[in-house]
């Protein structure tokens, strides 16, 4: 159908309109700039920052050692936490009630107690149980070790952080598995897949996309949480700067060294995380599998309107 276009005043054609004048943006912009200049001035002129000292220690050997410890600890905690998190998540989703109770208790306890408290607790385990042994409960002992040998500073740190992490991870993973449309499990059963194929080939690939963003956030959180281990004398990045400023009393510049490296590591991690997320959502519509039903319904309604109209 063709309609004759009504005539308009050429001066009122919106195509030639200028942008709106926003006074308050100019005002706040000016204020922010003033503050920024003030802050930069403070950073540069305040001699207590001791920038030459920062520079002197930035690539110090002991600092590099500290970074290495922090990163190793981070990696071990992430791997153990994720593996244990999968197990706890599956236990919580099990149809066997006792395993659900156990998993629920595990998560509530280890999420509730502050990681720092748990760290000190594990570190002092030898007091509670001087020997760790492999034995049948109340039966014969096969072998035993002194707790102080098994639970070193390193194992106490790994244990405490990995247990806390597994509790958080299990909730993230459980949410991801539950987020996969129930019809997928049904279809998988209907085509004769066993429970292993259903889980690893149908559920996991779809759950990953839901899990990944939250998991990526945990990567950063754990990296920062590793700084807690300095309390049990494990020489991570924070501890390594502390050991220096305890002698030289150059507290602020050495903390700045630690801040700089934490900032670098977190920035790299965040970038990697964003890349991963982008890769996993490739070829998909907005939203994860949990939302496809609604997307599909919306599209169907749109189609229907188009057909009806």
């Amino acid at each position: 159908m063709t309609l004759t276009a009504p005539s308009i005043d050429a001066a009122e054609d919106v195509a030639q309109a200028k942008p709106r004048i926003r006074v308050w943006r100019w005002v706040t912009g000016t204020v922010f700039t003033l503050f920024a200049i003030q802050f930069a001035h403070f950073l540069v002129t305040n001699e207590r920052f001791e920038w030459p000292v920062v520079w002197e220690y930035l690539f110090d050997k002991s600092i590099m050692e500290g970074i290495r410890t922090t990163l190793t600890l981070w990696l071990v905690v992430i791997v153990l936490g994720t593996v244990a998190g999968v197990c706890v998540a599956l236990a919580k989703l099990s149809s066997y009630a006792p395993s659900r109770w156990l998993a629920t208790a595990y998560v509530s306890v280890f999420v509730a107690i502050p990681p720092l408290v748990q760290l000190i607790f594990w570190f002092n385990l030898a007091y509670l149980q001087p020997e760790i042994s492999i034995r049948i409960p109340f039966g014969p002992v096969f072998h035993s070790w002194p707790t102080n040998v098994v639970i070193s500073t390193w194992t106490a740190a790994v244990l405490a952080l990995a247990i806390v992490e597994s509790a958080y991870m299990s909730e993230i993973i459980r949410g991801g598995i539950l987020g996969v449309d129930a019809g997928q499990t049904e279809a998988s059963k209907a085509v004769g897949f066993g429970s292993g194929v259903t889980f690893f080939k149908i559920i996991v690939p779809q759950a990953l996309r839901i899990i990944l963003p939250a998991w990526g956030t945990r990567l950063v959180t754990v990296l920062k949480a590793t700084s807690l281990v300095s309390i049990v004398a494990l020489t991570d990045l924070l501890r390594s700067v502390q050991e220096i400023y305890n002698v030289t009393y150059q507290t602020i510049p050495l903390l700045l060294v630690a801040c700089f490296w934490y900032l670098v590591m977190v920035t790299v991690l965040t970038t990697v995380r964003n890349q991963l997320e982008r890769r996993f959502s490739r070829g998909h519509d907005v939203g994860g599998p949990a939302r496809t039903g609604r997307v599909r319904t919306a599209r169907r309604q749109a189609n229907r309107v188009a057909v009806d109209g």
Binding site: E186, A187, A190, V191, G192, I202, Q206, P289, T292, G293
Partner: peptide, 20 residues
């Protein structure tokens, strides 16, 4: 049970194709 299901073909209202 999975082996028995393999002898039947099921078509669902919501298709339930594997999207990945």
């Amino acid at each position: 049970i999975a082996a028995q299901r393999r002898r039947m073909g099921m078509v669902f209202q919501n298709f339930n194709l594997f999207p990945h």
